[in-house]
Design a binder for these strands. Structure first.
Length: 203
DNA sequence: TCACGGATGTCCT
DNA sequence: GGACATCCGTGAT
């Protein structure tokens, strides 16, 4: 299967808009072992300066958050304990915003994914979480800073999802009022959306 | 050297 | 489906 990367200008839109535009697109990772790809079904927006949940809150600039201060369309990988999370940098340069990819639906390289993830009970356990999908796709922290419109790691054109939903983000209970923001977006009813509470639908 | 962060998987009900 | 133990890299002291 061939995937058509998006143009670099695709990332040139407001973060909240981009977070929704990413739903239905395909996240592709090419490695020596082969290609693994999945449709993006869940995202979360993080808008640095005023968002207490973001690593770049209050323009906090460190080696880790550096890439978020660059132009949009680059990869921000974030190692959390044993897991690696993948984000799409958004916003203009000096505007530290990013979109976390929380769930994908496999479309290519299922064998690779099973190989990398080990035995899982259900198919959706392969990629229905931010740490799971990076492992399944073979995304590692070394992908930090890569442009997302060309191989080996890129966003490819896909089909518009039929119905999307929005709601509060996950796992940021200590982030003040920012936790109320409906900045999590997902494809309604999709099996590969993380978590079990899919009911706080705003849109 | 230490405090901190949040997803995963397993066990339990 | 819910609760809990475990995992380790980053940044500040």
């Amino acid at each position: 299967m061939r995937h058509q990367p998006v143009h670099s200008s695709f990332f040139n839109k407001p973060t909240l808009e981009l977070a929704q535009a990413l739903l239905g697109k395909i996240l592709v990772k090419e490695t020596a072992e082969g290609i693994a790809a999945g449709i993006i079904v869940e995202t979360e927006a993080y808008i640095g300066p005023g968002d207490q949940a973001a690593h770049s809150f209050n323009n906090r600039r460190t080696a880790r958050t550096e890439v978020m201060f660059g132009p949009a369309g680059y990869t921000y990988t974030y190692v959390m304990h044993t897991h690696c999370l993948v984000n799409v940098v958004s916003g203009a340069a000096d505007s530290p915003e990013a979109i976390l990819i929380r769930g994908v639906e496999p479309v290519e390289g299922m064998e690779l994914m099973y190989q990398r993830r080990g035995p899982v009970k259900r198919e959706q356990d392969l990629t229905n979480g931010p740490g799971k999908l990076t492992k399944a796709l073979g995304i590692v922290k070394e992908d930090y800073g890569r442009p997302l419109w060309e191989a080996p790691l890129y966003i490819a054109e896909g089909n518009e999802p039929e119905l999307t939903a929005a709601g509060p983000r996950i796992g940021i209970d200590n982030s003040g009022e920012a936790r109320e923001y409906p900045w999590r977006f997902w494809v309604s009813g999709n099996r590969f959306v993380s978590g079990t509470k899919k009911n706080n639908i705003i849109k």
